[in-house]
Amino acid sequence: MAIKDYIRQRYFPQMWCPGCGHGTILNALLRAVDELGLDKNSIVMTSGIGCSARISGYVDFHSLHTLHGRALAFATGVKLSKPELKLLVPMGDGDALAIGGNHFIHAARRNIDITAIIMNNRIYGMTGGQYSPLSGPGKKASTAPYTTIDNQFDVVNLSIAAGASFVARSTTYHVLECVDILKRAIQHKGFSVVEILSQCPTHYGRKNKEGDAVQMLEFQKKTTAKLGSKALENDPTLIPRGVFVDIDAPEYCEEYDKIMKRAMKETLQKEPLKNFGNQANQTCDMA
């Protein structure tokens, strides 16, 4: 299938600003899904609120545009009731780590089979350029005209500490790497986090004098380096890219199934089958 078969063409051109990195992330994600040959009816995308969250409207998968920061909570519900579906959860930096911070760490802790994509443009773009938990100190925002003093989260370290079993980082400049990482993350069984550094030329770029989309992409190229590369060894201030963690760990839905089977078996052993049937009927009636 061509990537155009995976989008709702009637909503294009998309609403993001010219040069917004979120479009490139959508592009990379569609290619990853296409290269994996996934059926679009087997994918559910849930998103929260913000520029990034609008992505769920453009893809022709099952989609849920939900509450601010709660995309992972909705995704958890969908995954537990229909574990055969693939869950993709793209979130903005504020959506995932400010208001949705608790949902994020607990989804990672449970290691539920969901792919979380953090579209990190380091600002709240939709509401006018307020600083986010990923802006970092010394940055200008509409709520920080004299620069921010807050430290930022390191998404990679945070996800590893919270228990995610696949953690990676890439940028919108390194789009081929992005597609590869997204493919691995989607195939991974367990909670996978992919942080993609994105550009917001309208707010972040303009306020911090980082120039237009092209200059911001050049900046991403200059300030990041692949894990294990010479460049990173020589200059540890560069932001590392690549796959940081990829481990096999017990997955939440499978563990839940095991517990359910054990509980059902024990109930069957304790009570004769006839009574169990009656009880089941009673519970049904009550429900």
Partner: peptide, 11 residues
């Protein structure tokens, strides 16, 4: 295909 891959607008 770098133009096609990086285009935010799928244009």
């Amino acid at each position: 295909r770098l133009c096609e891959l990086r285009c935010p607008d799928l244009a």
